[in-house]
């Protein structure tokens, strides 16, 4: 049997609701008049599983979204790496250098680009964001790189 979008969304809701319900069993349930922290989560999880079962029934009847489930792992990995890299680098390298580095993964993105333009954009973006956020708006973003032994990175 082919995994349609309909089927996949049904399974997602059942799994999400199931795991959530299981995690909520640790929380006190309470009564309707005196709800514990686990009352609402359980109710919502049951609702979520119910939705999943409904979607499953529709899928098994051969209706609903028939498109196949496809995805582009490279696009997801590249984007995640760029954002994750930003998070890792910012406290150590400061904003301008981090931004400069953040544009480099474009090279492996498969998009059309020219290296000089890309570098210019990286530089421009670094100057612009630093000027706007750190100096203009005076937001507390680390600018200078942390120097080992002298300054500590702010990990928050």
């Amino acid at each position: 049997m082919r995994l349609t979008q309909q089927m996949a969304s049904a399974l997602f809701f059942i799994a999400f609701g199931g795991v959530y319900f299981w995690l909520a069993t640790d929380l006190a349930m309470g009564t309707a008049a005196d709800m514990g922290p686990g009352y609402m989560p359980r109710a919502l999880a049951i609702g979520c599983i119910g939705i999943g079962l409904t979607l499953l029934a529709i899928a098994l009847a051969g209706r609903g979204l028939q498109g196949p489930v496809t995805g582009d792992l490279k696009a997801v990995a590249l984007t995640t790496a760029m954002v994750g890299g930003f998070a890792l680098a910012l406290p150590w390298l400061g904003l301008p250098i981090t931004v400069m580095l953040a544009v480099l993964p474009v090279v492996v993105s498969g998009e059309r680009y020219s290296l000089p333009v890309l570098l210019a954009i990286g530089l421009g973006l670094a100057v612009f964001t630093t000027a706007l956020f750190a100096f203009g708006l005076k937001l507390q973003i680390p600018i200078a790189p942390a120097i080992p032994g002298l300054t500590l990175p702010r990990l928050g």
């Binding site: 954002v83 474009v106 998009e111 333009v117 973006l125």
Partner: peptide, 16 residues
């Protein structure tokens, strides 16, 4: 503007 120049800027703005 080609997307190659746009998306890093979008990501940087979202991250900041």
């Amino acid at each position: 503007i080609p997307y190659a120049y746009l998306f890093p800027a979008i990501l940087v703005f979202c991250a900041v």
